[in-house]
Simulated scan of single mutants.
Amino acid sequence: MSLVVMVIFSCNGNAQKKEFKTTSEYPITKTEAEWKEILTPQEFEVLRKSGTERPFSSELNNVEEPGTFVCAACGNEVFKTEHKFESGTGWPSFDRPIEGGVAYGSDTKLGYQRDEIHCADCGGHLGHVFDDGPRATTGKRYCMNGVAMKFIPDSKI
């Protein structure tokens, strides 16, 4: 029995192998009151309180036009349309982020460990990453909250 317990507790999740920044390490920091002033209530709930929007509620699910998805809080570039795919989950999904655009953390709110994705510039909660994405590319599914991002078409850059 003790061997089983040792094996269970010695396993490391993927998040422990990735860079995790503490709040004070993000280049953009604001007080809770300052974030509330610039974010909508729904953006604040997701980005600053790690909430989750309802599935199939984001207009970003239907974006196919070439462009860049940026953090809704600070404008940091986090994903490109070319890496977006239809996962069937109801949330915008990507097989990879823009290099340096995201930071990783760990979340155990559901009773098990998940790899949490944050904006690398402001620390805003964007969503989670799972190992059930397209095998032909990275095998990853970055499942993002649409409310945590804004879309900038390439034609506007």
Rank of each mutant, 00 (worst) to 15 (best):
S2C: 06
L3P: 00
L3C: 07
L3D: 13
L3M: 09
V4F: 13
V5S: 15
M6E: 12
M6Q: 15
V7K: 15
I8E: 12
I8C: 08
I8F: 12
I8D: 08
F9I: 07
F9H: 09
C11E: 13
N14H: 11
A15S: 15
A15G: 14
Q16M: 13
Q16H: 11
Q16G: 14
K18D: 02
K21S: 09
K21D: 03
T23D: 13
T23N: 12
E25A: 14
P27R: 05
P27Y: 04
P27Q: 08
I28E: 09
E32M: 07
E34P: 03
K36I: 08
E37K: 15
I38Y: 04
I38K: 14
L39P: 00
T40N: 13
T40H: 13
T40A: 13
E43C: 08
E43P: 03
F44I: 05
K49E: 13
S50Y: 04
G51D: 01
G51T: 04
T52G: 10
T52Y: 05
T52L: 10
E53L: 13
R54H: 11
R54K: 14
P55F: 13
F56C: 09
S58L: 06
S58Q: 08
E59G: 12
E59P: 00
E59S: 14
L60F: 06
L60W: 05
N62F: 11
N62M: 08
E64R: 01
E65I: 02
T68N: 03
T68L: 00
F69W: 05
F69K: 05
V70I: 15
C71P: 03
A73N: 05
C74E: 02
N76S: 10
E77T: 10
E77D: 12
E77M: 11
V78H: 02
V78F: 06
K80F: 01
K80E: 09
T81K: 00
E82Q: 14
H83M: 01
K84W: 04
K84I: 06
E86I: 11
E86F: 09
E86Y: 09
S87V: 11
S87N: 11
T89H: 09
S93Y: 05
S93F: 04
F94G: 02
D95N: 15
P97F: 09
I98K: 09
E99W: 05
E99I: 07
G100Y: 09
G101I: 02
G101S: 07
V102R: 03
G105V: 07
T108I: 13
Y112M: 15
R114D: 07
R114Q: 09
D115I: 06
I117F: 07
I117M: 08
H118E: 05
H118L: 14
C119W: 00
C119L: 04
D121P: 00
G124L: 01
H125D: 03
L126N: 01
G127E: 00
V129A: 10
F130I: 07
D132H: 12
G133A: 10
P134T: 04
R135H: 11
R135Q: 15
A136Q: 14
T138F: 03
G139F: 10
K140T: 00
K140E: 11
K140Q: 14
K140Y: 12
M144Q: 04
N145D: 10
G146C: 06
G146T: 04
V147M: 09
A148H: 04
P153R: 07
D154K: 03
S155T: 12
S155D: 06
S155L: 08
K156A: 14
